[in-house]
């Protein structure tokens, strides 16, 4: 049978020094689905997201226990190259973080360093990625200008295009709209709906309406534990756990 679960975590514990940020997380992420991770600040949802492409490696004094399986292989095996993992599992951050380079260079930076040098191919890739991120029409005449000139919402879509240019399988999004205005937010939510046909998307969000609107499955985290994980509709209409209900109805103390 074909396994639809692209990423699986098995009994994952994560420590910042002595502080245990995640406890026994076992979770499956399905292909071509949008999975939302919700929960109060400091609950570990961003930490989990950053575990999935080994971004937590950058922080000194952290430790992972358990397994994170990507296509059946543990990405924390010693022989696995995190660079390779990050090529296949892209990430979009909370604050738009374009490089201080031209729009074109922002998109082609990753592919170029991965070995693509043909100008025509790079241009085609840039156009394709920008179209996927619904930014092409706004920037097609100013590709040579600095990405820093764009608005926040445009910058964030540029960052999405930049991640897509690497042709990843999975796209991780860490509160991608929290720094944006409502119109930009709506655009990005719409974009996420389109992207899930091709990509597996895992998104951390503080905005519960957003999780309800765009995700297929939702996981609720509290103090480093996965409290409840099931279809979004179920989580938001008849959750099994009282804590989940309290949180989504805003009765959380």
């Amino acid at each position: 049978m074909e396994d639809n679960r692209v990423i699986k975590t098995k009994d994952v514990n994560f420590y910042y020094g002595k502080f245990r940020a995640l406890t026994d997380i076992s979770m499956d992420f399905e292909k071509n689905r949008v999975t939302a991770l919700i929960g109060p600040s400091g609950c570990g949802k961003s930490t989990l997201l950053r575990l999935l492409n080994r971004m937590n490696d950058l922080i000194d004094g952290t430790r992972v226990e358990g397994e994170v399986l990507f296509e059946g292989k543990n990405i924390y095996d010693p022989e696995v190259d995190p660079v390779e993992i990050r090529r296949r599992i892209g990430m979009v951050f909370q604050k738009p973080n374009p490089f201080p380079k031209s729009i074109f260079s922002n998109i082609t930076y990753g592919p170029r360093l991965a070995g693509l040098s043909d100008r025509v191919e790079l241009e085609a890739l840039a156009e394709q990625s920008l179209k996927q991120a619904v930014l092409w029409d706004e920037v097609k005449d100013i590709l040579g200008q600095s990405a820093m000139m764009l608005s926040g919402g445009q910058q964030q879509r540029l960052c999405i295009a930049r991640a897509l240019a690497m042709k990843p399988d999975v796209l991780l999004m860490d509160e991608p709209t929290s720094a944006l205005d409502p119109i930009s937010t709506a655009k990005i939510e719409e974009l996420i709906q389109d992207l899930k046909r091709q990509y597996t998307i895992i998104i951390v969000t503080h905005n519960m309406q957003q999780a309800a609107r765009i995700s297929d499955k939702t996981g609720f985290f509290y103090i480093g534990k996965l409290i409840e994980y099931s279809a979004t509709e179920k989580i938001f209409t008849r959750p099994d756990v009282k804590q989940t209900e309290d949180y989504i109805t805003g009765r959380f103390g």
Partner: peptide
């Protein structure tokens, strides 16, 4: 955030330092 953006694209640490 510059370092993170580059590393998240599957760019190696040295290339990140050198290019960004």
């Amino acid at each position: 955030t510059f370092r993170e953006a580059s590393l998240a694209l599957g760019v190696s640490k040295w290339q990140t330092i050198y290019r960004i």
